[in-house]
Design a protein around this nucleic acid. Sequence first.
DNA 1: TTCCGACAGTGGGGTCGCAAT
DNA 2: ATTGCGACCCCACTATCGGAA
Length: 506
Amino acid sequence: MLLSEIARTSAEVAAEAGRKAKVNALAGALRSAGQGEAAVVVAYLSGELPQRQIGVGYAALRELPPAASEPALTVAEVDAAFGEIGGVSGAGSVARRRELLHAVFARATLAEQEFLVRLLSGELRQGALDGVMTDAVATAAEVPLAEVRRAAMLRGALGPVAVAALADGVPGLRVFKLEVGRPVRPMLASSAPSLADALAKIDGPAAVEWKLDGIRAQIHVRDGEVRVFTRTLDEITARLPEITGPLGGLGLHDAVFDGELIALREDGRPHPFQITAARTATRTKKDGPQVPLSLFLFDVLRRDGADLLDRPDAERHEALVRAVPPDLLMPRTVTADPAEAEKVFADAVARGHEGVVVKSPATPYAAGRRGAGWIKVKPRHTLDLVVLAVEWGHGRRRGLLSNLHLGARDPETGGFVMLGKTFKGLTDELLAWQTEKLKALAVREDSYTVHVRPELVVEIAFDGLQTSPRYPGGLALRFARVLRYRPDKTAAEADTIETVRALAGI
DNA sequence: TTCCGACAGTGGGGTCGCAAT
DNA sequence: ATTGCGACCCCACTATCGGAA
């Protein structure tokens, strides 16, 4: 199969507005792929690489050789070349990767080059990724969508599942089972603005669990051998001796758990997220003592040969309680009383944790999906901040001023201290409004940032403050989003940096 | 006919590992 | 030693389509 056919399909998908039309275009490409190519075609047309990553990013794509005039590259050739690029390391690797990359691009037409740039930079922008492709695989192979979805969640990838579906149909898909040692896509939670909203979505009693600000961990145990995987299914076992040791000593024969890793202080309160993230990301042994991570388990997917994925939450939790000692369990309260649920929420927050997850005791483990069975709730802070500058948007926000630079008032200097940026929470209407408003306030503009007179006040919601090496105040907002503009306020009435420091406890 | 679930898009701050400077 | 880059942790929110109610 020629790469040009993939590039053409991608353009076709991008041009179609409806999801069904996108699915049909993708399914057409899948049907004309050979058996050996289907996995690569699925990956490319859902914005992924079979290699996952090959060390080529935005910077490596800035300058490219002239395009070829006629399509000649095959999908298999591109896949082989990308595999080779991904394998390059050591001194001179940057130049070598560039050389190999340019060899591929020199043989690509302009349309193919543009597709490859979007693919490699992770910005396919065709309105179809993994979810739509899952639909397309079901359509092309003429099998039920639920069968494809389940196989993909158990396999942890869609490519191999597509190959099986196209070759052997439903029987081919049924071969995929939960295996100890092969991570499945984790179940995700939706969110609600308040505990009452979350409880309203669940019939009868709800399980209310602490939500910790840590790293998601899927734990596989076979005969005492422990392996740990992240949310994106990367293995981090070797970094966690303090977890694998004790867990391996529990005498578990066969189990798969879901939980959270977090760095706790001596008093049991959490370290800032940055400490947990740094600890988890560190591969090599460093000098000096490392902050230990603690593990809190909240689910079990398999125990001693029995798959529990389809069992209700309450039953899985019973199995979890039987399988591990209490100090490994995420604190959990099952209640039908909203007041008691509020107490659990308040207690979790008072102990420095992120909030709670409200779960329906009836829900199965819907791996890889943001099911309605789990709902997270976090407290929300707000500040009235001043827009200092704004960046031009990309994609569907091209031509609009999108990403706001936010500052708190500094009464000492009469100036403003930047605390972060946000582009979230904006409706199309608000985007259009702020574009006009901020253009009128512009004082100077560089390549993609418009600096403005600090006059516009905006109400910002955020989850918390973190220390920042980037901003002059040494503080940055975590997960800032726009709630509304405050045309009733002047910049002189905006919140001050002292207020922010007090919130951060400085 | 209206409602709502699922999905894609738009990017945010921070950290580590590696190669180049 | 510092810088730039790629990768990967955490994440909120809106727009849209299309099936469910």
